[in-house]
Design a protein around this nucleic acid. Structure first.
Length: 321
DNA sequence: ATGGTTTTTACTGCGTC
DNA sequence: GACGCGGTAAAAACCAT
């Protein structure tokens, strides 16, 4: 125990010493205790801040974020454009010049204006950089989901931009917000991809994006979006498993009948769709395993069994196929 | 927070290829 | 022996209140 802790400390120290500037690879890193920043002696890049700055976080600094990025194979951009280099007109210079002489009033006002303008610019450009970063994450995600639609992309970008300027994204991180907002857009346009799938392909934390999606809905919508219709999922399954026309026809009929018998309400449309196709595939002879259906719909085999049991018990005999 | 419902997790047993 | 399937109990997630 104790040994391990010591080892960790040594390791951390070694890492620190060996640290290189991501920009110019200089090992000459200087820690400034006044500003709490570690600055590269080679190029002046601020490598690290002791305390989280008040600027919105647009890069992953936590270990978890970094790890999940690595796993996703995302090309990591270490280049922190301009970070920490922009000039700031501090308050302490408000009415004094560098030799501590008092400014005339007019100069004071001028300094005021300059500082305000500069702060505005700085905040603005920080937000814009965040958005740029977010858009590349969005592009990556859309690519992984095989979604080509420009409309979806634009709509999601629009929402994200709004969210940024509303402060909605603060503290949630791009990887927490982008998938959540994209999911909302997909619901909007009836493109069936559930949170599980999005989380999986993008290596996101499902719970996090689920929470952020809820918050998004609460803040920006006055009523909940209807869930994906089971029928949309049927189409998706047909495509993914390349099912023949007979199975497809059976599936549609079974779903319709199940709806009439009220076997679908209160149940997840994913589970319903998976079970319906499972039964249809058995009936048509183009048998698919429960596992395959579960995999496509991101539900468990248990759920499929529960749904399909109900279907068989309640309506198989009453339905003409 | 709470309680009711659905889904997941984890495990077991059975028949078939 | 691996695979597909069925069942179950308990945990977890979900949802409305």
């Amino acid at each position: 125990m104790k040994n391990k802790a010591v080892k960790e400390t040594v390791k951390a120290a070694a890492l620190r010493i060996a640290a290189k500037c991501p920009e110019c690879s200089s090992t000459n890193l200087v820690h400034d205790y006044d500003s709490g920043e570690t600055v590269c002696g080679g190029c002046g890049l601020v490598v690290e801040r002791d305390q989280p700055s008040s600027e919105p976080e647009w890069r992953a600094y936590t270990l978890e974020e970094k790890l999940s990025r690595d796993r996703a194979g995302l090309p990591i951009t270490f280049t922190v454009h301009d970070k920490g280099l922009s000039t700031e007109v501090g308050r302490k210079y408000e009415d004094r010049d560098s030799r501590n002489r008092k400014f005339p009033i007019s100069t004071k006002e001028q300094v005021h204006r300059i500082r305000d303008a500069q702060n505005r610019f700085r905040v603005h450009s920080a937000l814009e950089r965040n958005i740029t970063q977010a858009l590349s994450e969005l592009a990556r995600l859309l690519d992984k989901l095989s979604i080509e639609s420009e409309v979806v992309k634009e709509e999601t970008a629009r929402k994200y931009r709004k969210a940024v300027y509303d402060g909605f994204t603060r503290g949630r991180g791009i990887r927490g917000v982008i998938p959540a907002i994209l999911y909302d857009t997909l619901r909007q346009y009836d493109i069936p991809r559930n949170l599980e799938e999005i989380a999986e392909v993008g290596n996101y934390n499902r719970k996090t994006i689920a929470r952020n999606y809820r918050l998004w809905v609460r803040k920006y919508m006055d009523s909940a979006r209807p869930p994906f219709d089971s029928e949309l999922y049927l189409g998706k399954i047909f495509n993914k498993l390349m099912l023949n026309g007979v199975t497809q026809k059976y599936s549609l009929k079974i779903l319709e009948a199940a709806r009439k018998e009220m076997l679908t309400s209160g149940r997840s449309s994913e589970g319903v769709a998976a079970a319906v196709v499972y039964v249809a595939s058995v009936l048509s002879g183009e048998r698919k395993t429960q596992y395959e259906l579960a995999e496509v719909m991101k539900v468990t085999e248990v759920t499929i069994r529960n749904r399909y049991k109900e279907i068989v018990e309640n309506l198989l005999f009453t339905t003409e196929l």
